[in-house]
């Protein structure tokens, strides 16, 4: 997938996040949108459902212990609007780099997806990384 297409998708996803929503829950209420965590893993499961898609990423540490991160993301209709399918998110078992907002109450292994970068170069930006001070104003 060309980086240009990834860029277009990035713009579309950012625009989606700006939509007003009578929220069934508040993202900022449950996740700390001022912080981000970064890690690498493989996608083990995708829940392609409403109200939110969920992605499970297996992260293996140096000792071989596996932690499963549960990551919340956009509703299915918004993934579709951005041109993303379940297959796009599932990846193909290759590593994916995740940037996510962590749970506000400190619960480990829970996050809201900010960015997914797959080993084949596909990059999906769902929001701005709060720790990225170099982000240009748009």
């Amino acid at each position: 997938m060309s980086t240009l297409l990834s860029g277009l998708r990035a713009a579309a996803l950012l625009a989606l996040l700006a939509l007003p929503a009578a929220a069934h829950h508040s993202v900022a209420g449950q996740f700390d949108v001022t912080r981000s965590v970064k890690f690498s893993g493989t996608v083990s499961r995708v829940d392609w459902i409403n109200p939110h898609t969920y992605i499970y990423v297996d992260v293996t540490d140096a000792e071989g212990k596996v932690t499963v991160w549960k990551l919340e993301s956009l509703p299915v209709a918004m993934m579709r609007k951005a041109g993303l399918s379940r297959q796009d998110i599932q990846g193909d078992g290759k590593p994916v780099e995740v940037i996510a907002n962590p749970a506000r109450n400190g619960t480990a292994g829970l996050g809201y997806i900010v960015n997914l970068r797959y080993a084949d170069g596909r990059n999906f930006q769902f929001g701005r990384d709060p720790s990225d001070k170099s982000a240009a104003t748009e």
Partner: peptide, 9 residues
């Protein structure tokens, strides 16, 4: 508010 709910068609 159902009229104002974004993200679900």
């Amino acid at each position: 508010n159902m009229l104002a709910t974004a993200q679900y068609p």
